[in-house]
């Protein structure tokens, strides 16, 4: 019998229903993602009730497929790992209920995970970086700078004071009439534009602060569009996208590099949906290089919500024997590094 730890990961915190089977935190046996993006598109954003309904409809076929693709049965599993927060409560509850049902029925250890922690561990799937690191988590719900000294030890050193970076991308894409989700659309358009075309503000806040703010930038884009409309001017969409993205990326990269220097780490990790942004990846790598800091980011498929990262984070928690009770609940406002069970 193999001594590998084979972990089934389950992720339903937002609008992706996902299950994955990972051996020893790094051998990806399967990673099935059923995206609901088309379902929510006509509403211009995720509708929690519809997302929850879809999860309960799809969860069992996604689990089935993840086992089949991995070539394993329930009997081969070592543990079940699930995201229990933060996220949409109704959506989280579907995954949590399914994971607990498996843990009880199959008599397996249950591992409850923080969604942000899972995004960070998207970086540990292929070649695990050595700790300590600084991680920049950027998504529709988060813009966090985190110092990670050891597995499971997180120190939040900066966060957004208003909108998350991904939220700013979505909102700007909407006012530009690009559609949803906004991040990839702006990124693609920005590649053809001039980032210096429009001078948008960069909010650095106080001198020693690692916090972020994107609401001012968002208003500036709106003002720019309104003014152009009043004057009847044609807008260069590519220049606008490039200038907006440039402003976001400048602040994110400057603060991430400064944090890495201050905390004396050699590696910066990018995580979360916006970590797939090509402009951000390129700029951060370029600016970190002179300081001898290397930048790591997951493949695009492991940047969006997926269960592979859940099973990977679950593996490290499994090694520490940090298991959740069968009373585990969904915790929509779960804080990083502070389990709520």
């Amino acid at each position: 019998m193999s001594a590998e730890a084979i972990i089934l990961g389950i992720e339903t915190s937002c609008d992706e229903t996902s299950a994955a089977v990972i051996a020893d935190g790094s051998r990806i046996m399967s990673n099935v993602i059923s995206s609901q993006v088309p379902v929510h598109q006509r509403f211009g954003g995720v509708v929690p009730e519809i997302a929850s309904r879809k999860h309960v409809e799809l969860i069992n076929s996604v689990i089935r497929q993840s086992l089949d693709e991995a070539g394993v049965t329930f009997k081969d599993l070592t543990a079940v790992a699930v995201t229990y927060g933060p996220g949409l409560v109704g959506a989280l509850l579907v995954g949590v209920s399914a994971a607990k049902a498996l843990a009880y029925t199959l008599d397996l250890p249950l591992i409850g995970l923080n969604h942000v922690e899972c995004h960070i561990y998207g970086n540990f799937l292929t070649k695990p970086p050595e700790l300590p690191v600084v991680c920049l988590v950027v998504s529709g719900g988060h813009t966090d700078l985190i110092f990670i000294e050891a597995h499971g030890s997180y120190q939040l050193i900066g966060r957004t004071r208003d909108d998350a970076a991904g939220e700013a991308f979505d909102k700007v894409a909407r006012v530009m009439g690009l559609g949803y989700p906004g991040g990839p659309l702006i990124d693609r358009l920005a590649a053809e534009g001039n980032p210096a075309a429009i001078d948008f503000p960069r909010a650095y806040l106080e001198n020693d602060s690692f916090d972020f703010s994107f609401s001012g930038l968002k208003s500036s884009v709106l003002n720019y569009l309104n003014k152009a409309k009043m004057r009847g001017e044609e807008i260069d969409q590519a220049d606008l996208a490039a200038s907006f993205q440039g402003a976001v990326v400048d602040v994110l990269t400057d603060k991430a590099v400064a944090a890495a220097v201050k905390y004396g780490v050699n590696t910066v990790l990018l995580a979360g949906g916006v970590a797939a942004n090509t402009g951000l990846r390129r700029e951060l790598t370029r600016r970190a290089q002179p300081f001898g800091i290397s930048v790591r980011y997951p493949e695009p498929v492991f940047c969006t919500d997926n269960a592979a990262m859940v099973a990977c984070a679950g593996y490290y928690k499994y090694l520490r024997r940090e298991f959740a009770p069968l009373t585990l609940n969904a915790v929509p406002g779960l804080k990083l590094g502070k389990d709520a069970y």
Binding site: S52, R53, H55, V56, I59, N60, I63, R64, F74, G90, L93, V94, S97, A98, K100, A101, L102, Y104, T105, L106
Partner: peptide
């Protein structure tokens, strides 16, 4: 959804 997810997943495992 809680009841349904528990029932379906237990049934699937068994």
């Amino acid at each position: 959804r809680i009841g349904m997810a528990v029932a379906k997943t237990m049934g699937q495992a068994l």
